[in-house]
Simulated assay, not measured.
Amino acid sequence: MALFTTGEAVAVELPIARIPTRAAAFLLDLCVQLILGLVLVPGSQVLLSRWGADSAWRDTALVVTVVAVLIGYPVLGETLTRGRSLGKMALGLRVVRGDGGPIDFRHAVTRGLSGIVDFWMLGTGLIAVVVSLCSPNARRIGDALAGTVVVHDRSRLPFAALVVPPPWLQGWARQLELSGLSDELALAVRRYLIRFGTLTPVVQDQLGRTLVLTVCARLHTPPPNGYPPLMILGAVLSERQRRAFPPPPARPAYARAVA
């Protein structure tokens, strides 16, 4: 089990996926990739031959198809499903960020490219197995580079709704460009919010001001004047939560009346 601080200050324990389960999921994905390869490779070659393409074009198509199957398949699957390939779905696994949040394309493509080293460099997956055995959270090289962990996901992660922005800072927070807020810095802020009540007043103020200056520097915006660090940091994380978990669109009044 590992403790994650999910969303915006929700602590939850999730079981780490170990090598046997991950290996089974990998073999299922490999079967899907083999089927895709057996369909796409001959199909592309036949299609190019009908178009009168020379051997150079056919060789290029072969390389592109193999790369798309080996790397594009896991990257596309994990991006669209927020961390679950077909094999992981079957085994109840999910890739999550180091703070327990859902991954995006950046994490998926890092894991996919690193799979060349983890699985295909020696052709046996031995590197992934050895690195996972040496990691307390069973992380392979791709997980270490992407900052991700594979966990069992039979039970849904709780919706992170504990951070509520102060109304007077909502407008300021909605104008922020949050791409500069890294997962590591967001995790540090969440831990500060969780532990706020246990800190001494001096530490609350000093650590809070340090985090506010760091966060605002990363976001390239001056901190709003006259507000305590707790409100500013809460506003930033609540806005991050709102963008990561957008609420469902409201139905029109006439639709509600018909329903």
Rank of each mutant, 00 (worst) to 15 (best):
P15N: 09
L162H: 05
A61D: 03
T81C: 14
G234I: 00
L27N: 06
T214Y: 01
D205R: 14
E13T: 13
V46R: 14
A108W: 01
G92Q: 02
A186D: 04
D104V: 04
R58P: 01
P20I: 08
R82E: 11
T148D: 04
V12Q: 10
P223N: 03
T65K: 01
P246Y: 08
M231L: 12
G43K: 08
L34S: 07
L126N: 02
G180I: 02
A250C: 02
G98S: 13
R94N: 03
Y227Q: 09
D59C: 07
H220S: 15
V96L: 07
P102G: 14
V46I: 14
F119I: 11
L27G: 13
L86Y: 13
R84N: 09
A144P: 00
R191G: 09
A173S: 15
R191A: 02
Q170R: 13
A11H: 06
A108I: 02
P229H: 03
L80H: 10
V12W: 12
G77I: 00
A160K: 00
P222M: 02
T65E: 03
V117K: 05
R140G: 03
P201A: 07
L28W: 08
D143E: 13
T65W: 04
T5W: 03
V189K: 00
G101M: 02
C134Y: 10
P223C: 02
A161I: 10
A9S: 10
D183Y: 03
R84L: 05
R22E: 06
P158D: 11
V63L: 15
Y192L: 07
P248L: 14
L86P: 08
S85D: 10
G125T: 12
L86N: 05
Y254R: 12
S114V: 00
A2H: 11
A160T: 09
L157R: 09
R84T: 00
V203S: 11
T60G: 15
L199T: 02
A11M: 11
D29G: 06
G226K: 11
P248K: 11
C216W: 00
D29T: 05
P247H: 15
D118I: 03
F119C: 06
P165Q: 03
P165G: 04
L47I: 12
L126E: 06
L3F: 07
A9P: 01
F4G: 00
T65V: 11
D143C: 06
E78S: 01
C31S: 09
P167Q: 09
A217F: 08
L34R: 03
F105H: 07
V10Y: 04
L62H: 13
G147W: 08
M231V: 01
D118V: 02
L14Y: 08
G87W: 02
C134R: 15
